[in-house]
Design a protein around this nucleic acid. Structure first.
Length: 331
DNA sequence: CGTATTTGACCGGCGC
DNA sequence: GCGCCGGTCAAATACG
């Protein structure tokens, strides 16, 4: 959060390249989301022109999961309802000190890159969050907080300091969820990803004319959040940062949106060979999944294929598929 | 009328 | 200690 002030504009959104500059850390270790054989493992985001010949009309999640996927494909994975979106550079954000927020001031990439290059702290070093909410009980915490604030107004310092103390104590244990972000070429800010999100805040971004929006998964027990902002360097690019992992089924509200992009046959034919794919799934899947992500995916895809092969393939599948991707495997 | 969004206020961490 | 900043809350408002 310091360097972007010096030169917030003279930066290429390229965490990989930046990371290379970060001599002691290998790219794959800093960005385990990507492996050496991943097409994402590239020093430069795919130039827009290289995407122009790409037919966006039927890019599927499957494409993303195939070895031939590219940023565009990943975009489909996260925004299949937005035909104009293209992920140009997914990046992962690690819990760091507050100042190291991925989408830090001004430009997400800039914030992250500068953090990486300037902040000597290790990627997982600190745990700092401005949130008072307990990760697994957001809903309850929210209510509690509401209550708390009312109390604060009526009562006062005693209660307040008490709560602050409690929060501080809790906060020391609290770990911020790992985050990862995607750069997406899209005219739409809030990209459909199969889940329902409730916007809970919007802030002006320093050095950027575009605001940053804060969303929270609407599922009661789900703590996943995401931030969405538009790059001020490239207004066609949307930066979406996810934090946490879903622990629930995808709400069945997406028929006809992202849903239609997935075909069971394509899904079933998905090859999970690349390390990236596993990394991707491991990122997207909730923890405590059984076995490796690819096997989980296979199970789900297989079941899905059996269920759906008699149906019109393009009709509302994502809601059934995405939950399988994201959903914690149930006993 | 219920739900989602907007938006100003507030909080806590961090750098100076 | 102070100010800045990111993140969150919650009342007000908009919307279907």
């Amino acid at each position: 959060m310091s360097n972007e002030k010096e030169d917030p504009t003279n930066y290429q959104y390229d965490p990989f390249l930046n990371n290379q500059q970060h001599g002691t850390t290998t790219r794959s270790s800093l960005f385990p989301f990507f492996s050496d054989n991943s097409p994402f493992y590239n020093n430069h985001p795919i130039p827009t022109h290289s995407l122009q010949g790409f037919d966006p009309s039927f890019l599927t999640f499957t494409d993303c999961l195939h070895g031939s996927m590219d940023y565009t494909s990943l975009s489909r994975a996260f925004d299949m309802s937005c035909s104009s979106s293209e992920v140009i550079s997914p990046i992962e954000d690690y819990p760091t000190s507050k100042s190291a927020d991925l989408v830090g001031s001004g430009e997400a990439g800039a914030g992250m890159a500068n953090e990486n290059s300037n902040n000597p702290s290790t990627p997982n070093s600190s745990v700092s969050s401005s949130s008072n909410d307990t990760p697994n009980e957001e809903g309850a915490a929210k209510i509690g907080k509401k209550d708390k604030q009312q109390k604060d107004q009526c009562e006062d310092a005693d209660e307040k300091s008490k709560k602050v103390m409690t929060n501080k104590t809790k906060k020391e244990k609290k770990q911020r969820e790992p985050r990862f972000a995607f750069l997406t070429k899209s005219e739409i800010d809030h990209l459909e990803d199969g889940y329902r999100w409730r916007k809970y805040g919007q802030k002006a971004v320093k050095n950027s004319p575009y605001p940053r929006s804060y969303y929270r998964c609407t599922s009661q027990k789900c703590i996943v959040k995401k931030r969405v902002e538009r790059s001020f360097q490239d207004p066609t690019t949307v930066i979406t940062t996810y934090e946490g992992q879903h622990n629930h089924h995808c709400p069945a509200t997406l028929r006809g949106t992202a849903a239609g992009m997935l075909s069971p046959s394509l899904l079933a034919s998905t090859s999970m060979g690349s390390t990236f794919q596993q990394e991707l799934l491991s990122r997207l899947l909730p923890p405590n999944g059984q076995g490796d992500p690819s096997s989980i995916l296979y199970q789900n895809l297989s079941a899905l294929q059996q269920q759906q092969h008699l149906h019109v393939p393009d009709h509302g599948l994502l809601q059934d598929v995405v939950p399988s991707f994201f959903h914690k495997q149930e006993p």
